[in-house]
Nucleic acid binder design. Structure first.
Length: 613
RNA sequence: GGCUUUGUAGCUCAACUGGAUAGAGCACUUGACUACGAAUCAAGAGGUUGCAAGUUCGAAUCUUGCCAAGGUCACCA
């Protein structure tokens, strides 16, 4: 039994014994004692005042007597108001540390339960940006966390490879590209295709702006401007209408989409070629970010399955058809709305594809748990999707989860492609690594290493700064991205934690081979040393918490706290020249375990540790 | 407007899911390298937790009402 279980069960038992009152052990209100008080764990005794009919202080005294009297590992207690502060014996902690040190792995044994995690999920018409990075870090980290808990994890992305957007890129390339390729122009594939998407928008505006001044445009403005908006504002909101009903470019793009859906050979070939460029580009970005996937799904490959299943559901009266042939589902009794699932022309919408994809993925992998990492702007969409899957009677419907995260703002406001404020993923990574490099050169610690080794360290530091900056924030909250702070290497940052690890390495190396078996005999543990062990003890709980909440920020904050305590420990205590051989052995062992825990925790966040920096 | 999320130090974030005097980092002021790596440590200053009621031994956390910001209410994805 662990020490926390012992305290909880002991307290429950004591309350029963002393006051004849039943409490469930896991309902015992206990937490880590705050720094300013003596003790390791505190039991809150207020809840027992009714049963005991005594004052909180007296109850705490009585419970303290009982627990310390009965359990060897609880040595002392003190009472402040309604709080019973218990002190755990050095022997328990020393022994606990020793047990952890013997473990080969901090991971849990595999138990085979399957979970699938979808993240990244890009469109093929633009490169990845800062928003994707948050998405990818969350998805990747959750995958690592569930893997560490013994799950059989499958990482997937669904790629939005079809639709009008990619047709715009294709059309622009066809019209203005003169056969250029990423190779010929020296541009990374995804950026290359994104460039033609932007070119399309330019050409479209060049067509749209003059049209607004034509007779036709002015007539539209005067007859359809019901809200009496100003001209510029009206035409802004009229853009889609113009695209669909007047624009030559719009008509061409739509014609291309129709050809695509009709399996036109030429269009499909072009589509394959351009998407291929994009995937090459994405793969470079993923590799640089240090992530990979087990399986890929393409909307072009699942939307038909969605349609089929909707037809089936139509027969079962889960869906209904309107007079215009569009298909809907009525979710009003689930406090949702009526939702369209097939257009009147029979073509599919976003929801159609997601229905098909969910079914296909279950067929392929059989995971009853399925996590979608998607920004919170789609909360409603996923509520609806999950409700639909339930009504379709899918066996995996209850295991669906939307990991909804807040979008990233810049210090200057929102990211908007229209205003050119999108932070590109590749540029960003390059920048943080460069900043780390400049800093490291200034420090001059790495001069005798080869250039390749140096670059590898710069990469690890830069990416740690960036990744930690993003992942330390509670996933569901919106966050502000400050580029200057994201390359910070001091304070609450990734490199601060890396530095603790590097210091540990350095000490261990200098210490050489040490017999740590006498660590158990160490009897004069200081507060910082106790803090470190008690933090190591919390690891399991924190990982579980992060998994339950689908939120790696718990682990990020945990790693930071631990690194902080380590730095203090490293500053306050001599390790190699410790006062006694026992102290030395103990501290070396402590360093080993802290190092392992930090490396393990950071790995769960997708952050690598350098040996030195 | 309906539904929904978020308001904590100048800024970026915590607060172990209802517990003690609300904590870190950045920025600012000051001290510590001839020490196992100063990307560190120590100290100072900084708060009516948006506002107001309520629930209770106890509220940043739960309830309600305001205020402010975001998201969403497409035959877009």
């Amino acid at each position: 039994m662990s020490i926390t279980e012992l305290i909880k069960e002991g307290t429950a038992e004591a309350v029963k014994e002393l006051y004849d009152h039943e409490v469930n052990a896991n309902e015992v209100n206990m937490n880590v004692t705050r720094k300013e008080f003596d003790g390791d764990y505190s039991v809150v005794v207020f809840p027992y005042t009714k049963a005991a009919k005594k004052k909180p202080e007296q109850i705490a005294e009585e419970l303290g007597e009982y627990l310390v009297g009965k359990h060897d590992h609880l040595t002392k207690f003190n009472v402040i108001k309604g709080f019973l502060n218990l002190e755990v014996s050095d022997a328990y902690w020393v022994n606990y540390l020793n047990n952890v040190a013997q473990k080969k792995s901090l991971k849990k044994a595999p138990h085979g339960e399957k979970i699938m995690i979808e993240f990244s999920s890009p469109n093929t018409n633009k490169p990845l940006h800062l928003g994707h990075i948050r998405n990818i870090l969350l998805g990747w980290s959750c995958s690592k966390i569930y893997d560490a808990l013994g799950y059989d994890v499958t990482k997937v992305q669904i790629i939005n490879d079809r639709g009008i957007a990619i047709c715009k890129s294709m059309l622009a390339w066809e019209l203005f590209g003169n056969g250029a390729t990423p190779e010929s122009s020296g541009i990374k594939g995804d950026h290359f295709v994104g460039k033609w998407y932007v070119e399309f928008e330019k050409a479209f505006q060049a067509e749209y702006q003059p049209w607004q001044k034509t007779e036709e445009g002015q007539e539209v403005f005067s007859t359809q401007n019901k809200k009496e908006e100003e001209e510029a504002k009206f035409f802004k909101s009229y853009k889609n209408n113009y695209f669909n009903n007047y624009s030559k470019l719009g008509a061409s793009a739509k014609a291309m989409l129709l050809k695509w859906e009709d399996n036109d050979e030429e269009v499909k070939a072009l589509w394959n070629k351009m998407n291929g460029w994009v995937y090459e580009g994405f793969n470079v970005t993923y590799k640089n970010l240090g992530v990979e996937f087990d399986d890929l799904y393409y909307e072009s490959g699942t939307y038909l399955l969605g349609k089929e299943n909707i037809e089936k559901g139509l027969n079962e009266k889960i869906f209904y058809k309107k007079e215009d042939n569009s298909v809907w589902i009525d979710l009003e009794d689930a406090k949702l709305d009526h939702k369209l699932v097939l257009r009147s022309d029979g073509t599919s919408v976003y929801m159609t594809q997601d229905i098909g994809t969910a079914i296909k993925r279950y067929e392929d992998h059989g995971a009853k748990k399925m996590v979608y990492v998607v920004a919170d702007e789609q909360n409603y969409h996923f509520k609806v999707l999950f409700e639909i899957m339930k009504r379709m009677g899918e066996s995996f419907a209850d295991g669906l989860h939307h990991l909804s995260y807040g979008m990233i703002d810049l210090t200057t406001g929102k990211m908007k492609s229209r205003e050119g404020t999108i932070v590109d993923a590749d540029d960003l990574m390059k920048d943080v690594i460069q900043a780390a490099k400049e800093n490291a050169i200034e420090k001059g610690e790495l001069t005798e290493l080869s250039e390749a080794e140096q670059n590898d360290i710069y990469r690890k530091i830069g990416l740690a700064a960036l990744k930690f900056f993003i992942i330390k924030v509670n996933a569901k909250k919106r966050m502000v991205f400050n580029p200057a702070e994201s390359v910070d290497l001091q304070g609450n940052t990734g490199p601060y934690i890396q530095y603790a690890f590097v210091r540990i390495n350095s000490v261990l190396k200098k210490a050489g081979e040490i017999d740590t078996s006498i660590a158990k005999n160490y009897t004069s543990m200081g507060n910082t040393e106790r803090d470190l062990i008690s933090q190591i003890f919390r690891l399991e709980e924190v990982v579980q918490l992060a998994a339950d909440n689908f939120d790696p920020s718990f682990i990020a904050n945990y790693c930071y706290d631990m690194a902080k305590t380590y730095h203090k420990f490293n500053h306050d205590h001599r390790i190699i020249n410790a006062e006694t051989p026992e102290a030395k052995a103990f501290r070396i062992q402590l360093c080993q375990v802290v190092g392992n825990v930090l490396e393990y925790g950071m790995d769960l966040l997708g952050i690598e540790m350098p040996e030195r920096m």
